[in-house]
Design a protein around this nucleic acid. Structure first.
Lengths: 350, 350
DNA sequence: TACTCTAGTGCAAACGTTTGCGTTATTCAA
DNA sequence: TTGAATAACGCAAACGTTTGCACTAGAGTA
């Protein structure tokens, strides 16, 4: 077939007009300066000769690439798949394309990934891997390239964000466990330098306090990462120091999974020994051996909203105040939570 | 910070030398034409002033973008995550970046995605969503842009491919079931226009034949797609027409999952009523309610190999004969398969 | 008729690189 | 001492667009 890509100039000489006219005729905005007749002829020829705009030349000229970067913490965490789909779904409508990168939950890796993306000239970045203090937001600001945070946010304000009401989610989780009769409730937290794990933990102690349940320190243990492995290790120490707990909330579905494995290692089962509720409602969760009660977040919608927000910020004539969209979580009850079983009461020694 | 990106010219005037010298000093290849002293000074200044090559200008000049496109059939299928990671891992070493797109298992969607990628000027494409006859390969050929197929291949030859030995995998699966004493074995196939489902089905009947087990037509039913939903529907009809089957092989883990749901709808359980083996060993499978015996494919390695292959093909001085790398599958035995339970024999009426 | 105005188009610069070629200055051989 | 060879660098074109400006011709006005 055609070995060489056909260019604007090719079209121009073929039609015996100037390349600038061709350019204008093809552009939706400036085609109105051109006589309708010429526009029609140009577009027909472009169609026939298979003209495709050279993205590099366009980018070089106008300074925008019509591409963005997406950075997620972990490619293996299925929860990000629907988020990415949501992003794509709106990107497609506007002719944008996305680079996908992941940080392996590593701050400096994320930083260099963003640097690479910026060097590629992306028009904006959707960042789902933020730490509470994160150099990426300064990096983007210094290059004045639009950034929107999804799910994980950052302490420092002045950034566009799309997040879910984590506190509300935890309230729901606690409420559910209380309804089931649980009182001795633990919490497996994620690293404190990530907003979601920080906020969820805080919401936990607060909600408990509102129900006049003071939570003692040994009821809380922090996993070193929001992964299954992190959950497993944390759960081991939790079980060691909480022989009496009847329920726990995990900061994350993945952590909850880790709790399961630690539990079976100790020879216990869920929800018989302990009820567990997770967070995120990641895909395929209902297939699991112990279907996990969890807090569902609107993944796809989060993706959509963040893409819309970013596109809006990329638009040069957008107002310049930051937005924060807050989405509602939902409680999904499955089989990992059950009513507390009444054990034979010790007679108080008094 | 710096509002405007610093360019080669900025560096040049700052150092009172020509931009061509700066360009050469920065380039690994041509820096040897420049005196070591100058090279050092240029690189130092570039570092300090935060110079980043303008990707668009580079692409426009040399005609290569150092980016590739990845197309997978389904973002929600976890099996592609490790493949993509494998691709990224080698891409990173060579300064390449990847666009990620998905086709929703739709041929025409895949075609337009590829067109978009080509129009973006990607240097090559890794295509994991191929049908047995697929317009994408002609599209790429006509634009003379490198293409490598992963996992799913195409009937027409002359394409670089990375695949696993599906036939061997099925042999293993059949062998495993035979060892367990099964003889009445069914097969839930995927759509015949996808190489993997076609080959796996063919391997099934062949292997059975080699063991002197003729497989009757009703033992095979074809799902309309390689998804859980497709598996569920197919399994319903399978159960209807196979009251005596004791085992089956699913073309896909997702299909196997669908079989599970249909099974429970019928009030049966696995492996008690029927043993099931899947294919792919997708992530998180060992967590499932019925841990699925399956054929494991080397996901990460498949990604690596395909990226290596593509990069090699992109290299202008590569030889021009196509390569086909074939990887070995592995049998993973879990709890969805069990020895056949001997039912009370009907006495032959003769 | 002479003038201004406007719609339609062409000209050429610019975006930031890379690279073939030309120009110097230096080295080496004879 | 002269010549050629080499090393180091500068010049300028080119990649394919977009866009401000200049230009032309025809329409409208007085």
């Amino acid at each position: 077939m055609h070995r060489k890509r056909v260019t604007l100039r090719d079209l121009a000489e073929h039609l015996n007009i100037n390349t600038s006219t061709v350019s204008r005729a093809l552009s939706e905005k400036s085609s109105e300066m051109i006589s309708p007749d010429v526009v029609k002829r140009v577009r027909k020829a472009a169609q026939e000769m298979g003209y495709k705009q050279n993205a590099a030349a366009y980018a070089l000229k106008v300074g925008r690439t019509k591409s963005i970067g997406i950075i997620i913490p972990d490619m293996m965490n299925p929860v990000f798949a629907p988020i990415v789909r949501g992003i794509h779904s709106v990107l497609n409508q506007y002719g944008y394309t996305a680079f996908l990168a992941y940080s392996e939950n590593n701050a400096s890796a994320a930083h260099t990934e963003v640097e690479k993306l910026i060097s590629r000239g992306v028009d904006g970045i959707i960042y789902a891997a933020a730490f509470r203090t994160d150099s990426v937001v300064d990096l983007c600001k210094s290059h004045s390239i639009p950034l929107v945070l999804v799910n994980r946010v950052v302490d420092q304000g002045n950034v566009d964000t799309v997040k879910v009401d984590d506190s509300l989610g935890i309230e729901m989780a606690v409420g559910h466990l209380l309804d089931l009769g649980h009182r001795k409730i633990g919490f497996i937290a994620g690293p404190k330098n990530i907003s979601v794990s920080y906020i969820r933990l805080r919401a936990f102690t607060q909600t408990m306090a509102e129900h006049d349940l003071e939570v003692e320190p040994h009821r809380i243990v922090e996993a070193h990462s929001l992964t299954e492995e992190g959950g497993e290790k944390a759960m081991s120490v939790f079980l060691g120091q909480n022989p009496d707990a009847t329920a726990l909330i995990a900061s994350n579905d993945l952590i909850a999974l880790g709790c399961f494995t630690a539990l079976t290692q100790f020879g216990y089962t869920c929800p018989k020994r302990i009820s567990i509720v997770g967070f995120n409602n990641m895909p395929y969760l209902d297939w699991f051996a112990i279907p996990l009660t969890t807090i569902s977040i609107p993944h796809f919608q989060m993706g959509e909203r963040s893409a819309e927000l970013l596109l809006k910020r990329i638009d040069p004539e957008s107002d310049d105040h930051y937005e924060e969209v807050l989405l509602k979580p939902k409680l999904i009850i499955r089989q990992s939570t059950a009513p507390v079983i009444r054990r034979k009461k010790k007679i108080a020694s008094t």
